[in-house]
Design a protein around this nucleic acid. Structure first.
Lengths: 345, 345
DNA sequence: GCGCAGATTGGAAGCGCTTTCAATGCCGGA
DNA sequence: TCCGGCATTGAAAGCGCTTCCAATCTGCGC
């Protein structure tokens, strides 16, 4: 490090070719003789040369940067397992693909939500965006971003968003359906459902699947009690007592995510109930918390880290032009995980 | 958006000044008459002009980018609460200060750890780095990074790292001491300590504080049983049975973090023990899991999000030259949180 | 052996910004 | 009124890279 970092001109000089040829080699351009390519690569190695990404974007007009946008309350806990796992997967994919990930956490308050996201595109010159719920379903936002010429991939978008942009996710409706059917087979016929925020369409799909299963088995609306939480542990503990204090309480509490299920579990414990004897509980996500609580939670596994990775991969294929047709949705597999908050199957 | 984004020249033209004057205004440079400044600002607003950060770094030589480096196993869960919270705090500070945060997760395998981090500096031109444990204490790594002319702030560094670089953290030794003294006052006199990885010096300090407290109260090494985990829930469940299966088992298990404490709790439950009646348990961090498990965990609170924020603030003051003297350490307050895995105080 | 398409190379012109450094304008003191 | 000195502005020169386009070199068919 005896001075400045080497530049592309240093490489060109050392390998005896023009600067533009080095650029070609570096970018895998066509029409470079193998011998020349090798010579350049050697010079690159000798000098330990690295392209300057800033200069590259300036000249090339592509920042090779994508934004990862998720929602979280400034005062609340840090990003939940769901976001953290998505981010990790996205991060890995970015490293592999040579892109930069700009993490952006947007407060819930939301007056200026859209503004903040647009700034991300304008100020930082992001070429693409990964939108996590509930932004995945903010059609207005999506339109605006697209207008800016920015590619978007949504994580777990609802049906309408899927007509606009690419997305990755599991089949939440089917997952809700499968889980509920299995619960019915287990003998349950009075259900409680702790839903999440309405704005998270993918979580709402779980509820739809749940309802369809009930209907398919001839169980009407009177067989289920539905309450709405906000995906937090606390909302689980808060809602549970009131769902249990009714004439014919449910024999199982189906929760839209694991945190709320953990909350429900805690509330049930607090009432001295036996789980799953007195009340069964199920979650969704298969987050670490599902294995940590006692008894461990029956839940639906979804490959969250993989979702994040796939989202980036899709985004990048859009950016590089490898993908050109209309919006596509990549559906990954989910799976029921039977643990001990439900009777053995 | 009828075409390209406006450039600094557009602003210059519209406001009738030279490009360089616009640049001065934008960067708060001196010697610009208020009237001119206002005129330029107005043009900026009219055009909705945003500086192009890539061009700025190319010309100015400063990337306004800092790296956030943490360690995590590719196969393991996503970043724990600790890292996630640090990241969130750092992210917020970066937004405020106009810097970009480049998150980098480095695998544990570590053959190429150092290499990966250096690439982060060389490839991405990071100006500064935030090092999370265990990198905070990797003196060799720190030296190398400093040689590259890159500023560093360590999160929870040990004593030797503090002589080299800036750092933020709580007084882990005092925290361990305080907690243990309180436990002794509560009547405990046989202790189990589930330590973390040796490479995390800050967690080791908790053990040192623990030992000092024991010594101060005339309790020898025979009064405590020490085992080493890896900060995971699983290591807590694994270690607990063997610590309890001894002639005079401890009456309290002090754990170096909350996840292991949660694991210990689960293992104790599994043996049918009453908590805190048969065995008390304490954690460290005051992570969400501490409130989620049953009974909720007595633990030591540390302001993790704030640590992340402060780390970025320190780093940026170094970068801007606002801070020039030797390495400094910013110590934040910790606090004991009494919940229900220990007897009422 | 000649001519042309395609493969290889290089020259030059910026990308949008900051950084010298030189050119003005202004003030008070002599 | 003239001059030094400072405040204010601008012209020019890049930062390190890519892109466009022209130049040269191949190979092949005839």
């Amino acid at each position: 490090m005896n001075g400045k970092k080497p530049t592309i001109d240093d490489v060109a000089r050392l390998s005896g070719v023009a600067r533009v040829t080095v650029s070609r080699v570096l970018n895998g351009g066509p029409n470079v003789r193998p011998a020349v390519r090798a010579k350049v690569m050697e010079a690159v190695k000798t000098l330990d040369y690295k392209v300057n990404p800033q200069a590259r974007s300036l000249a090339g007009g592509a920042s090779r940067t994508v934004g990862f946008v998720f929602n979280s309350d400034p005062e609340s806990e840090p990003n939940s397992y769901y976001e953290a796992a998505l981010e990790l997967g996205a991060l890995r994919a970015c490293v592999t693909l040579g892109y930069q990930l700009l993490i952006h956490q947007i407060p819930t308050d939301s007056a200026g939500q859209q503004q903040r996201i647009l700034e991300l595109i304008d100020d930082q010159r992001c070429e693409g965006l990964i939108l996590c719920p509930p932004f995945s379903d903010d059609l207005l936002l999506v339109e605006t971003v697209l207008t800016r010429g920015c590619k978007v991939v949504a994580v777990s978008p609802g049906p309408s968003a899927r007509t606009l942009i690419d997305g990755v996710g599991v089949d939440d409706e089917a997952a809700g359906y499968d889980l509920t059917c299995a619960l019915i087979k287990l003998g349950h016929h009075r259900f409680g459902f702790i839903a999440g925020l309405e704005t998270h369409l993918s979580a709402e799909r779980r509820l739809e699947g749940f309802r369809r299963a009930l209907a398919d088995h001839g169980l009407g609306d009177d067989a289920c009690l539905i309450r709405r939480g906000d995906f937090t542990f606390r909302s689980g503990t808060r809602l549970t007592p009131e769902m249990l204090d009714v004439p014919h309480p449910p024999s199982v509490l189906v929760c839209a995510n694991d945190d709320m299920a953990a909350g429900a579990l805690a509330a049930a414990h607090a009432r001295g109930l036996d789980i799953p004897g007195d009340i069964a509980i199920t979650g969704f996500d298969d987050a670490p918390v599902a294995s940590i609580v006692w008894p461990p939670l029956t839940t639906v596994h979804q490959p969250v880290k993989l979702l994040g990775q796939r989202a980036v991969e899709m985004l990048v294929s859009r950016l590089t032009g490898a993908m050109v047709d209309g919006p596509s949705f990549q559906q990954l597999d989910h799976g029921l995980v039977w643990r001990q908050t439900t009777k053995a199957f």
